[in-house]
Structure formats: structure tokens, C-alpha cells
Design a protein around this nucleic acid. Structure first.
Lengths: 348, 348
DNA sequence: TTGGCAACCTGTAACGTTTCAGTATACTGG
DNA sequence: CCAGTATACTGAAACGTTACAGGTTGCCAA
């Protein structure tokens, strides 16, 4: 298993080995310390020397060895995205990753994906990251009002950002979509079409944005003089099959809703299928407003009303937030809330 | 000169610091070297000692410091997934990541996502990974018949696996979906429904699976006595809007196809929209067979015929392949081809 | 007795980086 | 002219790990 080749001093410029500070030191005739400091613009290095070192470094394509830095300083230059492998939306995973990578592209940071599954405590992966010091910053989703992960990371001084807000009286960076506003807009749009018996396909009950959605729904309902048709048997975490079946059941009842609001595009496909299973027609018997993160629902059924949520933006904002915290900014200043688009009907 | 530098001993068991080999050495009364070897079952360590060390290590939750290992040995314990941030399918990203993480969950490996965008040479991220030694293994997608990335990694002795095959006479691990078979099955299914003027929505032209798809299509066409209606103006890399528009154009022509085969679900949504824009009806005027990676198309239109491709499986296979190569297995033994499901009509 | 050998264990060096504690030189003010 | 100090640089140590080159026993054959 010993595949290490004997290594001589790399004090030569012969150029096959990856350059290190030692290489640079030799080439410039300076000490390793000076080179190290020159590269990070330390004040006690002469301007001339600094320029010379940086020039040579650029010329030979010097890149600091991550393991060396990490071992010495503990800095990993890693951001970890913690994902639930059962319940995250497909579009969420893809877009948020791209959003994050967009932001960290010009930094020395790498993105690692830390998964956890149904069986596990969501705290597990976070605990692992913190205990092993595997990341300088963490991004979590599926945020809860009282989130043990956020509390844990605050206690341990690990910078993080949450997708969704918490409600623990603790300050930390977050990015959130304004689901209160979304639900409200959705209700008003349906009311505007004369719909007044509305059902809501909610987010999973434990998460913070469940509350915002439900509250936005309730407040707008009473304001609009509409009423709720309870539909608590499903959430967007349920399978397509379940949502479809239960929607069909719901729509066969006498007191069925004439408007439905759905918190996710995938659920909406199932809802519409359920509606049609019950022999009803979208746009005539019932209207549906749905969130979506890519322009897919209007291809599906033109009658749908949609509101867009941009997960790529969320990824970028979250990355910016963690990096900001790592850089020493106030956590309280790294919070953002993204307003929903209008409720959009199909157009050409 | 008796001013000695105070050295921070972590030789105590007081327990707040993360345990290192030194901690274990102190606790067991052994040398650091012995502990290191005992933990990796080296032969020259007494059975008794070995068990004792491993017990203590487990008790206090010792985990090797990755930076230490990496600095000393060059082993990163990292697998990198290289992704194009413009053109990967949403479902692909999500599922392949989950597939990979499933496999590496019980290993010391971490998954890092290395993105590249339109503007960049696809070789860039790979070159970066290799030059900086950032990963022990690499997974790439969007594989080309003559793929510079595969060639480069082979030359540099970096283990990797490709999603899709190459055609360079070089041996390396891959996982691929049998797109030749898919296209063939699709043609036969359409022919079975009496369709004999078929169009194909291809993968992007540069990629290997474009060829397999096109060949499978062509071979089955002549075999079935059907003919091709050329539709070279789009591929699944085009935008929804473009595909939709061009499909509509196609379908308004006199020599329009009566069957269409689509290589991706997202494209299929656009294709169907285009068909309907042209005033035609799916299942009556034209039949469409499409690949999909999640059960979404039958919710969209019942008339669609679908073939399933499992990206999560691909992720797992690719991870297994890279890990196998890293572990010293023959690259030629780490290749797998996944057969398409039957062509499935809607059922209940 | 001596030498050889196997079985087990150990100290030291090195990976590349940053930090600590200096050193050498030149300049300043008295 | 000297002390004091600012400027520009440097070597050594340390982070945690593994490889290398020994060391120390105890036992056995000669």
C-alpha cells in the first residue's frame, strides 16, 4: 500500500511538484514566514517584497495546501449543506446547490453535502459537523420554530444560516420566503374569482413555515369573508399517491372546497389529478393556486394560478449569510425575507 | 536559558478537547505510533493491545483528524461530483446526490459538489481537482465519446467514474442507462400503436448518449418499417419555450410526425404543450413516449407513454464504482449498464 | 555463552501552514 | 554617540497523522 515516492527537497524550481511556501521561499530568496505573510498582505512586509512574492506566486500558480491550513488553523474553507434525503423537494436540492455554488465560486470555499435520512435525528449530522470541525459554516433547511440544530450551533459558536425562520428568541442568519404573504395573496386571488370555500395543502406541520402559511391563510380568509374547508389529512411531505387519493375523497364530499391552495408544485400535480379523479374540472368547479419553483405548472394545466418561489436565490442568500457571519458580520444583519410574486394566471 | 516554552499538553483526560492519538496514547500508556497502528489493525501489534486501544478509542469517541491524515498521506476522503450548473436536469442533481450519499454514508468519505458553468471549459473543474489534490475520486456527467476529462484523469492516475460511456478505447468505470434500448423500445411501442412517422427529441449532440439514442432510434425505425421525421432544431438542452415553439411549428406542417420520442421529462412537457398549441390531441393525432426519472408524466397527461430511468441508482452505482477503483479494483470491472423499463402506459 | 531472530513497541521526522519570539538594520531624538 | 524604536525579515514550534528506522525483550540454536 506504500505508493509514496521518495521525496527530495522541493527547494528546486524543476517544477513537477506542486509549489509550496518553501518553493516560493527558495525562489524569492526569502524565509517561509515572510512569504506566508507577504501573501496575506501583512503590514510588516515591505511593499516591494510583497509585490515580488505575489508575482512569483501567481506566475507558478501557487495555491495554499488546504490540509496544511486546516491543520494549523482549524479553518476548513468548507460550507456544509445539510439535507434530508427523504423529504427535500427535488427542485429545492438542485436550485439551492446552484445558488450556493454561485456565491462561493470566487471564494476558497468548497461545498459539501451532508445528508441525513428518515431514521435519524436531524441533529445527528449537525453534531457530527460541529464535533469534527468539518465545516466553517452550515446551512440547514426544514427549519422548526424551536430548532435544536440552530440552538446547538449557537451554543457551539458555529456560523450557520437557516432556510426558514425560527422562533426561539435567538438571533441568527436566515433566508425565508414570505409564506404568510403567499397564503394571503392566494386567498385573495381565489376570493377575487368568487371562490369562498377554501382548502389548504400545508407544509409539514413541524416546520416554521407551516405556521406562517396557516396564519396567512386564516387571516386572509376572515378578511375576505371566505371559509376554510379543513384538509388536514395531507401535507406536501406526503406521497403523490396519498395526496391524490385524499384530494379525490375531499372533492367527492358535498361540502367540497371550490378553491385549493398548494404549497408545492409536486403536490399540486397530485391535487389536480385528485380533482379530476373526482370528475371535476379545474377552473370551472374549483380553482387552484400553487407555489412553484420552476415554470412547470402552466404547462401542466393552464387553469392553474401560480406563485413563484426562487430557490436559487435562497441558496445564494443563505451562502452570503453564512459567509457574512464567518467574516464577522452581525448575525442579525444577515436575515432576508423574499416576497412572493403576484398570483399569476396562464398567459400565452 | 531556563525559560521554557509552555506546551499545551492535551495528555489529560479532562475531556473538553477533541481526543487525538496523543490522548489515546496517554490513556493507554502506549506510544502514539502504536496507537495509530493498533487502530488500523497492523500485524505487528499484539492482539491484546489492539483490542484495548480500539476499546478506549470507541469509548472516548476518537475520530481521526482529517486534516492530519490528508496532510500526511494525501488522502482526502473526498469524492467530488462535478456538475454543470446550466444544463443538468433538476431531478438528476437531486437523485444522483442522494444515490451517492447513500453509498458513502458508512464510509469516511464526504461528498463535495464542484460546479462549472456555461462559460467554462468542462475540463477546468477537473483540472482544479486534480492539481490541488482535492479529491480521491471524481464523478462526472455529460460524458462525451472523446472526453478530455476522462483522458486527463486517466493520465494523472485519478480514480473517477463517468455517467455515460466514452468511446476512446480507454477503460474506466462508468454507469450508463441503455439509451439504445430505450429508443428502440420507444419506436416499437409507437409502431405497435400504428404510428410510423416518428420524430425524436434528442439529448445534446456532443454527448455519448446522443449517439446511442439516435442509433437505437434509427435501427428500430428501419426494423419496424417506420420513417423518421427530422426534428434537429431542438435537444433536451433547449429551453422549454424553444422546444414548445418548435414542436408547434413541426406539428403544423403537413408531414408532421404521428409519434414523438423524448429523452427527458421536462422536454416532454414542452413537447406536449407544443402539440396542443398546434391544435392537435395527444393519443389521437400523435403519441409520445418519454423518459422520466420520477412519476410525474402520467399525472401530466394520461396518454403519455413513459420509460423510467433511475438516477438515484446511477448515483449509487457511480459511487460504488469510484470507491471500488480507489480500493484497487480493476476499472474494467466497475462498469454497469442499466436496462430501461418497459414502455408504460397510464394505469389507474 | 553468544548471536540471531521474532514479536512488540517507540521516537523522530515529515507533510504545509501560521504564530511566536526573536534578530538585524537603519533611523530617530536627545 | 547612545538608547530607543520602527522596519523588515527569520527560525523554530506546533497542529495530527503516518512512515521509517530503530529499540527492547525473551527465546532458541549453536
Amino acid at each position: 500500500m506504500d505508493r509514496r515516492v521518495k521525496k527530495k527537497d522541493n527547494d528546486d524550481t524543476s517544477g513537477k511538484e506542486r509549489p509550496t511556501l518553501k518553493t516560493l521561499a527558495f525562489m524569492t530568496g526569502l524565509g517561509v514566514t515572510t512569504v506566508s505573510r507577504a501573501l496575506k498582505d501583512a503590514p510588516e512586509i515591505g511593499a516591494e517584497t510583497r509585490r515580488r512574492v505575489q508575482l512569483v506566486a501567481k506566475q507558478i500558480g501557487y495555491r495554499p495546501n488546504r490540509a496544511g491550513v486546516r491543520l494549523r488553523t482549524g479553518k476548513t474553507n468548507v460550507i456544509s449543506l445539510v439535507l434530508n434525503t427523504e423529504h427535500e423537494l427535488m427542485s429545492f436540492v438542485s436550485d439551492i446547490i446552484y445558488g450556493v455554488t454561485e456565491v462561493i465560486a470566487d471564494t476558497p470555499y468548497h461545498l459539501i453535502v451532508t445528508p441525513y435520512s428518515r431514521s435519524q435525528d436531524p441533529l445527528d449530522p449537525v453534531r457530527y459537523l460541529v464535533e469534527t470541525g468539518s465545516a466553517d459554516g452550515v446551512i440547514i433547511s426544514r427549519t422548526q420554530p424551536n430548532d435544536p440544530r440552530a440552538r446547538y450551533m449557537l451554543e457551539h459558536g458555529v456560523p450557520f444560516a437557516t432556510h426558514g425562520r425560527t422562533d426561539m428568541g435567538l438571533v441568527h442568519p436566515y433566508h425565508d420566503f414570505d409564506n404568510y404573504a403567499f397564503a394571503g395573496e392566494a386567498v385573495r386571488a381565489l376570493a377575487g374569482k368568487g371562490r369562498n370555500r377554501l382548502a389548504l395543502v400545508t407544509p409539514p406541520a413541524g416546520l416554521t413555515y407551516y405556521r406562517y402559511t396557516v396564519n396567512g391563510f386564516a387571516d386572509a380568509l376572515s378578511e375576505a369573508g371566505a371559509s376554510e374547508v379543513p384538509f388536514n389529512t395531507v401535507s406536501i411531505d406526503h406521497t403523490i399517491k396519498q395526496i391524490r387519493m385524499r384530494t379525490a375523497q375531499l372533492m367527492r364530499r358535498d361540502d367540497r372546497p371550490d378553491g385549493i391552495i398548494s404549497s408545492a408544485a409536486a403536490a399540486t400535480l397530485a391535487v389536480v389529478a385528485g380533482i379530476e379523479d373526482a370528475g371535476l374540472k379545474l377552473g370551472r368547479d374549483v380553482d387552484v393556486v400553487s407555489k412553484q419553483s420552476s415554470e412547470v405548472l402552466h404547462l401542466f394545466r393552464r387553469e392553474l394560478l401560480v406563485v413563484n418561489e426562487d430557490f436559487r436565490l435562497a441558496g445564494s442568500e443563505l451562502a452570503r449569510a453564512v459567509l457574512g457571519w464567518i467574516a464577522g458580520k452581525e448575525p442579525g444583519s444577515l436575515q432576508s425575507l423574499s416576497k412572493p410574486s403576484e398570483v399569476l394566471p396562464y398567459r400565452g
